[in-house]
């Protein structure tokens, strides 16, 4: 399995008042293509911070995270944006859909930033909506959808450009059990079919149950890991 993420001695500190708080205290990890892995830990364990750095939304204070061959700490703002635009997908706890846009427009958004023609975009959006079973909601807007449907739109948006890596931060936190399983099953299917790497930040047991690799974080350090053979 080819490594797509290499994290070496990653440290992240945040200024707090006159002092600082160390969220990550020297993380070493690697992730391979097609993994379905999760960063698990209580609040403050550093999982979201690590996810943000992998997603090039934040910079390490020390150490390095090499994502898809790109050293995050050395990327310019433009290069970071290019990495996110071309190779990464994000799924957020509160969906982060564009409220005034339709389902179609929300899913289409990442493609607008890439050089696809209108017809290509249309086909890709419809394919993505078919993966998540929302082809009948094309013209709906997020306020007209349930939480589960919103998160499925977010998954379609993250997957529409077929990224190498999808980062999901507490994707089921706002969903009931049935919707959570539905969403996770969808993501698992996409992981299998498209060989997309999924990394979750979660402490939700429902999510943990689906993971093939569980990385437990505690106080900014990797406490232990579990590999599940399915």
């Amino acid at each position: 399995m080819e490594n797509i993420i290499q994290i070496n001695q990653l440290i992240k500190r945040f200024p707090i008042g006159k002092g600082e708080f160390t969220a990550l205290k020297g993380i070493n990890l690697t992730f391979g293509t097609g993994e379905f892995a999760g960063l698990i830990g209580p609040s403050g364990s550093g999982k979201t911070t690590l996810l943000n750095i992998i997603g090039s939304l934040d910079m390490p204070t020390e150490g390095e995270a090499i994502v898809l061959g790109k050293p995050i700490s050395k990327l310019s703002a433009k290069e970071s944006a290019k990495l996110r635009k071309e190779s990464l997908g994000f799924i957020f706890q509160s969906y982060n859909l564009l409220q005034v846009h339709t389902v179609f427009e929300n899913v289409e958004f990442p493609l607008l930033l890439l050089d696809y023609t209108t017809s290509e975009r249309k086909k890709m959006v419809m394919d993505a909506l078919e993966w998540v079973g929302l082809t009948d909601k094309v013209k709906s807007k997020p306020p007209q959808l349930s939480g589960g449907e919103c998160q499925r739109v977010a998954i379609a948006r993250a997957m529409v450009k077929k990224p190498s890596l999808v980062l999901a931060d507490e994707p089921t936190a706002n969903l009931d059990a049935a919707n959570s399983h539905n969403i996770l099953q969808t993501m698992l299917n996409l992981n299998r079919e498209l060989k997309t790497t999924f990394i979750f930040a979660t402490h939700d047991e429902k999510v943990i149950g689906y993971l093939k690799r569980k990385i437990f974080l505690k106080d900014g350090l990797v406490d232990h890991e579990e590999w599940i053979k399915k």
Partner: peptide
């Protein structure tokens, strides 16, 4: 949140 989402989806801040 929308601004953050734009950035996460690949927009630069200048964009």
């Amino acid at each position: 949140k929308e601004i953050g989402t734009y950035v996460a989806l690949g927009y630069t801040r200048q964009q």
